[in-house]
Design a protein around this nucleic acid. Sequence first.
DNA 1: CGTGCCTTTGAGAAATATCAAAGCCTGTGG
DNA 2: CCACAGGCTTTGATATTTCTCAAAGGCACG
Lengths: 231, 231
Amino acid sequence: MAKLDASLLNNLAPFDQLDARQRQEVLDLARVRRIPAGKSVFEEGMEATHFNLLLDGHVRVERLNPEGEKVISLHIPPGQLFGIARALGRDHFPATALAVTECLVLVWPTALWDTFVERYDGFAAEAYKVVGNRVSEMNNRIMELATQHVEQRVARAILRLMQEHGLANDAGTQIAFPVTRKVISEMTGSTLHTVSRLLSRWERQKIVQSQHRRICVLDAVRLEQLTHSVH
Amino acid sequence: MAKLDASLLNNLAPFDQLDARQRQEVLDLARVRRIPAGKSVFEEGMEATHFNLLLDGHVRVERLNPEGEKVISLHIPPGQLFGIARALGRDHFPATALAVTECLVLVWPTALWDTFVERYDGFAAEAYKVVGNRVSEMNNRIMELATQHVEQRVARAILRLMQEHGLANDAGTQIAFPVTRKVISEMTGSTLHTVSRLLSRWERQKIVQSQHRRICVLDAVRLEQLTHSVH
DNA sequence: CGTGCCTTTGAGAAATATCAAAGCCTGTGG
DNA sequence: CCACAGGCTTTGATATTTCTCAAAGGCACG
């Protein structure tokens, strides 16, 4: 395998405070994996032998309930650490990570976690910030599921995808990877039929535009308004 | 204030691996707070100037959504660390902690967090285990809210209260603090009316017994069955 | 011993799922 | 280059769950 170039780690928060030598060190300890779209990076229940950083692509984190229904926890944008079970004192992955587009992932053995925390300034802080953010997102998710209607949850889910994974174009902001009605229903605890009806309505109202797995938000302000309940 | 006795820390996971001298050290740095039932230990949004350990009593963690609806995140049993925003790189509390019975709480300034992590073996591991467990519970919560019906969620909520806060008696297992229909509805994203109807039915079926804020589980096995969807 | 929660229950409304069916893209293999 | 299979989407009709509204009775604490 060709030696990786330290510039790969530029602008990545966990290694922000490292100098070039340290970055090379970190990279020399890493392995790069290319994951084709649709394949998993790791699966729920697997032993967490490695931790990961997403260099490129988009990863979907999902779990199955005992009845086999899928629930999508979150989507990870490029540049983030993920599968860091170790930061939570876990030795098995609590969820499955799926490459939703082709992905490039840096991978280190979990055994190096403590070394990284100790040796590299800012690494631990960034890792716990990621955990903190995820916890906070989960909390919000719980609040939404507990108190809001499907329409509001779907609007919020699409807004989040837009904010985290959006590509601005002339007409609006397009979500960077294919998203089906089914996926949105699994993100919101709903059904693909209800999501389809909502999107059809919003399309008529020129709030979003979508064709075959591509969703583009035309009017984020109105979508944001839809996330608030009217009562 | 009288000097605290080091035996207070016996059998508390975060300080399990400490010797008597270290325990005294830890206690000398602590303050004890007594919180009357119904008062808050800290409030959502407050700066996290301290972290806490619940010596005695039961704490309810809750948030308000923008519409002012309450959502109960979890209940904390005696012996656990809580309000450890620092472990997640947060400097403000993400939720309110309410004493649901009279509570005794050990309190340390957040500034000591790093010292504890560094100096006391097992403290960091225990702290991150607590975080890991909470994250895992939150994940389960999300799955339930997304895929299960109210009946199943309520059954699960009561089972959890029983497991974490139950006092076995001759007839069954009683939840150690008062719980109203409203509280259960706020734990499950439901309404007090629906919860009342469910509990009435279960009372007729001899699965639970309840009178005025006291709930006692008579048949945990049947309650467990109710958490599974029938399809 | 009354006032303020707490609980129960009914009736009707609303949100959302389920069932059903048809049409539509798109990538693939011949 | 075309046709087709398989997944994706739409929409209607109906069923179900759960909430909302309403009212009355009960318990406990001050």
